[in-house]
Computed example of a mutant assay.
Amino acid sequence: MIVPATQEIDVSDTSPGIADSANPLPDTLRFKAAAPLVDIGANLTHDSFRRDVQAVIERARDAGVGTLIVTGTDLEHAHQALELAARHRGLHATAGVHPHEASQWSATPAQEFAALYREPGIVAVGECGLDFNRNFSSPADQERAFEAQLGLAVEAGLPLFIHERDAGPRMLEMLRSWRDDIADAVIHCFTGERKTLHGYLDLDLHIGLTGWLCDERRGHHLRELLADIPLNRLMVETDCPYLLPRNLPAKAPGRRHEPALLPWIVGEIAHWRGDGEGDICRATTATARRFFRLEDN
């Protein structure tokens, strides 16, 4: 989860606008993926989804996004994500402590998370990591909580769903020391520069891309990096309700991002890579299913 300082989610806006009441998305935002997609980062426990999460999931399925990884950013939201996954086909959950909340880390949540990682609905440890952009928790607290979650991931044998913003050098240092032990890791919502990207790829990590690359103010540099990411290391995500693509052909109700819009991001990736949308869909889906061990589900 990355909360842009300039983006607000209007949780009260559920009016249908120019669309029908069953589907508030206007026709120009009713996308259909060229092949089935996995959204590896959906914050469906956010309050903005409280009243219509079932409809959001159905719209995602209609758009070809039938598998959703629901992000757990603290203990409360991890339990909520797990409950959603238990109720809805195609949903799975992660569980961790976001770096913004790292100051709350202690032995008690560590024990509770260790128990959560034995639940079959949990497919990754995280969202965890480092965020030196906003420092809602001190860097020292962030590193302490992240180190602890790296250890829990090793014990559980689960992959990591990692948040990193403006902390690439330190993140690389920490991951290098753990790489032989951790099962695997994805840098969710990658926003960094070429040197950092290549550092992650050199560690055989995965890269998650969002609508950040659709943001002309700060994300266009990612377009030049797309060709550097092997397709078997690339996954796609909305990070909804955040990071609504700024170049959508119409306004999204309430300025809220949702999984049904993921095909637009895939189209942008395909365009700037020079690949077919179907190729990106099939490759990222195969990678995500393998990474989260969903092949048999």
Rank of each mutant, 00 (worst) to 15 (best):
L130I: 08
G199E: 14
R144H: 06
Q111T: 06
E164C: 13
A167M: 15
L205G: 14
A115V: 02
S137G: 07
L197E: 10
G219E: 04
D215K: 00
I207W: 04
E155S: 15
W212L: 05
A115R: 08
D131F: 08
V123I: 12
D180H: 10
D141T: 05
G121D: 04
E216T: 13
L226F: 00
G208H: 02
L203Y: 08
R179M: 14
Y117N: 09
L226K: 00
E155M: 08
R165H: 15
M174Y: 15
V123L: 04
H188W: 02
G192T: 05
L213P: 02
I182H: 08
L197R: 06
V125C: 03
A124D: 06
V125H: 02
V186L: 07
L201F: 11
L197C: 04
W212M: 05
G157S: 04
Q142S: 06
R165F: 14
A140I: 03
G157F: 01
D166W: 09
A183G: 09
S137Y: 02
A124M: 07
M171S: 11
E147L: 12
R144V: 02
Y117A: 02
V123A: 02
H198E: 09
D166R: 14
R179G: 06
L205Q: 12
R118W: 01
R217T: 13
H163P: 14
L175W: 10
V123D: 03
